[in-house]
Design a protein around this nucleic acid. Structure first.
Lengths: 234, 234
DNA sequence: TATTTGTAGTGTCAAACGTACATTTATAAA
DNA sequence: TTTATAAATGTACGTTTGACACTACAAATA
């Protein structure tokens, strides 16, 4: 077998930017790093890519270890590889971002990482370039959610229109007219109105909706505008 | 200095998907691989990330080596890292895609790589997972170009409306109504009409346009639709 | 000099969409 | 029965989109 002579080898890690939504605010799941350097400091959940796994498999493994959850929405964000990003030795990190239903998570969480949810406007200083990763992930989330219905990944199976709107308003740090908002959401034909209501937030109660999973899967990419009928292009 | 004990180290490469436009068709620049394994086979231009450079710097270095050009449009596409993607030893590759004015390139090209332009519907079998990278890059190009004015990167400084439309039609493998097309393009306010014409393609001649570089830089992200006024979100 | 030929350039109408905006309804608690 | 609170809903206007066909220009040729 040939080899590639004279080339340097590096460590390769994955780090996960984990978003959740508690009903009021978008949150970020951080852990206390369990090894040197920077032991005890706040950090993204991460780990090294092992010899027999792909980076995506590594991210899935690491996510499951922390949250107990499989099959989460997971998207490769960007690979960061400045030579000095890790002071110990050269390590490239493939950042993934993921969206989880915060309540699902609470049932399953591992306690060994001392994980906590933090609001995005007030989270602690993170190790290495993890803050930059969070910033990138946040931009990507806004970008993607403006075109595709990914934010449903953050909600429980049943949710109300006001909950959904709260989520969008928090993600975009904006307020939307509720008549226009619900009209637009309903026009996507992705939601199925339920017969029961959530009465926890008001006397009148708000009807629950569920995702139409079939249409959600099929229409996931169908949101573009600049090119005439760009739907079929992806 | 601490270390990370027991972790495997891997080679990290970058590979560049280089798009050009010859006036009729979108093209891909490929080289003949100069070393084992797969020596002499068609391949993307790539190389290993060196100890003192970031992956992006590696991509810039590699691009300049091949094309002689600096400051090209360059975007990180995705990192591919299946354990067996390179048969020699485990190598992760960070794929970048880049857009170049094919005529600029012709002035500068290095001959040592036996590079050739291929149309996207008919290019040779590539080594490793490079065909997958090309497919990813093509999707990304379509996606991105449907929202942002990146295709101008493929055109010379002065271009005509029919040339621009040809480019869009080739990228999307579609035909557009020229009245609607020019109306939409002009409404972006990114173009400056010139006084002179290109008479190479018709007797009447077509007016040249140039990019308004200031507005191009400022409005690069300003194309979205799902969220009201998403312009300021990026 | 008139005619032919081939591409460039332009306008209108109808439908869909985006946006601004205010009142009524349902229910629990007082 | 009244009150308080959040949920639900409709309309009108301006803008954008998309379908569609004719005229303008200039070189070559008759």
């Amino acid at each position: 077998m040939t080899r590639y002579p004279g080339q340097k080898h590096y460590l390769v890690a994955v780090d996960c930017i984990i978003f959740g939504f508690d009903g009021d605010h978008l949150k970020l799941l951080l852990i206390k790093r369990g090894f040197q350097p920077e032991k005890g400091k706040w950090s993204l959940m991460g780990g090294f890519v092992q010899p027999k796994e792909s980076p995506e498999q590594a991210a899935e493994r690491i996510l499951e270890k922390l949250t107990g959850l499989k099959g989460l929405y997971l998207e490769q964000l960007q690979t960061l590889g400045n030579p000095n990003r890790d002071p110990v030795e050269r390590t490239l990190s493939i950042a993934y971002f993921t969206l989880i239903d915060i309540h699902q998570y609470e049932k399953q969480i591992s306690t060994q990482y001392h994980a906590e949810w933090f609001p995005l406007d007030k989270f602690p200083r993170l190790i290495f370039d993890h803050s930059k990763m969070v910033e990138l992930a946040r931009k990507r989330l806004r970008y993607k959610a403006s075109l595709h219905p990914i934010l449903f990944e953050l909600l429980p199976e049943k949710f109300t229109m006001p909950q959904l709107q709260n989520l969008y308003e928090d993600v975009y740090d904006a307020t939307f007219d509720k008549r226009n908002f619900s009209r637009k959401v309903i026009s996507t034909d992705l939601l199925v109105k339920q017969k029961d209501k959530d009465k926890s937030a008001s006397k009148k109660g708000a009807f629950y909706y569920k995702l139409n999973k079939r249409k959600y899967a099929a229409n996931f990419h169908a949101f573009l505008k600049f090119i005439p009928n760009p739907d079929h292009l992806l």
